[in-house]
Design a protein around this nucleic acid. Structure first.
Lengths: 206, 206
DNA sequence: GTCTATAGCTGGATAGAC
DNA sequence: GTCTATCCAGCTATAGAC
């Protein structure tokens, strides 16, 4: 029986510093580099505090994932309700740093059940939200939902852009320009020129 | 100066057992579970032998990646020279277990430079091979390379199928059936009904 | 809330017997 | 080729001082 610390100072400054440090470590050196000692050192504080705030390393990873998931979900909602939801979807999927984090969590999930369950339920929520909005959007664009089910559009955009990001992380970009041009020309046909701010840039402030 | 053991009994039985054990561990529990002790135990042998055959854990990972890469490259060549290269590409990309391994290596690459470099050069080789073959294949199919550059077809097939695999690993399969149907209907238009053996099944023997 | 100290474990890597 | 023994580092987690 662990003591119930979940609600203890969710907005504590130290707590946030620890989460930020864990995130940076995970992106820069992979999840295996995220130990209580290294996180604490990077946050300029003490390793024991990780256990004070999160009970265990598992708890830390879980909270880190949840924090990111909530941000992504909120951004996604914003983007989908904009005047150019397809551009929004495409640009949002292009965020490099959040993608690197995602890849680490996917690998982590391979041996941490709690993470696995969390990613699963979050992904479903995410997808349901995309589907609901895009279904009506694509209908107003006059897309035949028999020939092009909304789910296929979403999966193509998500799949292609994640794949390009993964490859780019290894300096592989053969044919990427062609691929981007092709996708964007199709989006342009439906929503015209991109008018929203490139989210990949807006996210540099995170 | 390490002693040059690279060529020492590349076909040794124990060596192969160690590589197999490392592969299984990596798929089942993630790369962090791959330690010299655990690999040796799973292989039914001794931890010191890892260092005898591979010099270091880094060396083990590198050899494991290379072995898989060579197999994939060979299979890819076979598939691309078949009568239905598009079906081959699509089916080969659907191999679940090799995909799980790939994801682990990608995460590993985040903090092992040697792995990173190896994945990078292998990916480029892989892509170049696909491009070369598919360029002429698509031309014979009468595909306009201006409108649909060969690289885009390849990237779409690879990206979509990896994305579906990743999601399925988390029990997320919303819209997957639609996506598969759409891709396969386009392939069918070009190459007719699938006549080759489903590679995902053929690979169960590995 | 934050720290030190420490128990207990697992890991990479090497030396040397056989 | 294969094994045991061993060193040293780093990890999770807890107890307890402040």
């Amino acid at each position: 029986m662990k003591s119930p610390r979940r609600s203890a100072a969710d907005d504590s400054n130290t707590r946030t510093l620890l989460l930020d440090a864990a995130k940076d470590l995970m992106v820069e050196e992979g999840y295996a580099a995220v130990s209580s000692r290294r996180v604490a050192t990077k946050a300029g504080t003490n390793a024991a505090l990780v256990y004070y705030y999160f009970d265990s390393m598992d708890g830390l990873f879980l909270e880190l994932f949840r924090r990111g998931a909530e941000q992504s979900l909120a951004r996604q909602a914003r983007v989908l309700s904009s005047a150019q939801p397809l551009w929004g979807l495409w640009d949002a999927a292009h965020d490099q740093s959040s993608n690197a984090l995602t890849m680490e969590f996917i690998a982590l999930a391979n041996h941490r059940k709690s993470i696995r369950a969390e990613i699963s339920s979050y992904s479903k929520k995410f997808r349901r939200m995309q589907l609901e909005v895009m279904s009506s959007v694509l209908e107003t664009y006059g897309i035949d939902s028999q020939e092009w089910p909304p789910a296929t559009i979403i999966l193509m955009i998500a799949g292609i852009s994640r794949f390009l990001l993964m490859e780019k992380a290894f300096d592989v970009d053969i044919g990427h320009a062609d691929m981007v041009a092709l996708v964007e020309s199709h989006i342009r046909e439906l929503e015209g020129e991109r008018r929203t701010i490139h989210l990949a840039l807006a996210d540099l402030q995170d």
